[in-house]
């Protein structure tokens, strides 16, 4: 028996919004420690890794490890049927071929359940090694989303250059060129407005804008985003989900021929 409950459907809706543009389907691996999903996008350029800890749920029970392959478009249709303040419970029997989403209104007067067929997905699982990154940047998630959106107008690619002075995002194309420089902040009133740069070595990396923009669909989940970079390895874009877990996106760099 598997059962996981969140007192508010908003978080689950936001999580799905953060992954459904990149992934058509995904396997939710459930164990007593929580729920994990790892999947590459269709073109195998990026990887999504979602971790939801069992202690972050309002109720969590998982008697046996369970892998549930779900079509994320179908899941999105179902979650649209939940009000933001509904309690959502995800339920499945052991070895079941369906999963049930139950939504309960705050006053308990409306209870709906939606059963969805599970899929057998043959997805490759990649081992991601613990890495010490040359540069780690923490910045407001809204600011990162804004920069990715703005620079995508100028080029398919953005160059991220990080030094101890700051981080610079650049794009150049037919129209011209664009540069956005952010300096590390000192003495900001609110922690969520801070820009913090931890640098061991400077890095310059090139990434495809369309994936960065897809990652920023996670912005509603977190005030801050963390970018971890080292030369010639994938960028990690991490959004923490308060008291529940995190979503990490790995993006393969563009490398000069």
């Amino acid at each position: 028996m598997f059962e996981a409950r969140l007192n508010n459907a908003t978080t689950l809706k936001k999580i799905l919004d953060a992954i459904k543009d990149l992934l058509n389907e995904g396997t939710f691996d459930c164990s007593d420690s929580g729920i994990q999903l790892q999947a590459m996008d269709n073109s195998h350029v990026s990887l999504v890794s979602l971790t939801l800890r069992s202690d972050g749920f309002d109720k969590f029970r998982c008697d046996r490890n369970l892998s549930m392959g779900m079509n994320l478009g179908s899941m999105a249709k179902i979650l649209k049927c939940a009000n933001n303040d509904d309690t959502v419970t995800i339920k499945a029997q052991d070895n079941a071929d369906t999963v049930t989403f139950m939504f309960e209104s705050q006053n308990q007067e409306k209870v709906s359940d939606y059963e969805m067929k599970l899929m057998n997905l043959d997805q490759e699982h990649l081992g991601i090694p613990e890495t010490d990154y040359s540069c780690v940047v923490r910045m407001p998630a809204m600011e990162f989303a804004r920069i990715c959106r703005d620079l995508a107008q100028f080029s398919e690619s953005v160059v991220i250059c990080c030094t101890k002075e700051g981080v610079k995002f650049s794009a150049s194309g037919d129209v011209g060129s664009a540069n956005v420089k952010l300096a590390q902040t000192f003495n900001v009133d609110k922690e969520e407005e801070a820009i913090v740069i931890e640098m061991q070595e400077p890095v310059v990396l090139t990434f495809a804008c369309r994936y960065l923009n897809a990652f920023t669909k996670a912005t509603p989940l977190s005030n801050q985003v963390q970018l971890s970079m080292s030369a010639d390895v994938p960028l990690v874009v991490e959004y923490r989900i308060a008291e529940l877990g995190h979503i990490r996106y790995y993006l393969a760099p563009k490398i000069e021929d």
Partner: peptide, 14 residues
Amino acid sequence: TAKQTKIGSFFEKE
């Protein structure tokens, strides 16, 4: 021009 790499070339299959 820079060439897009694939994510699978950086991580080992499990």
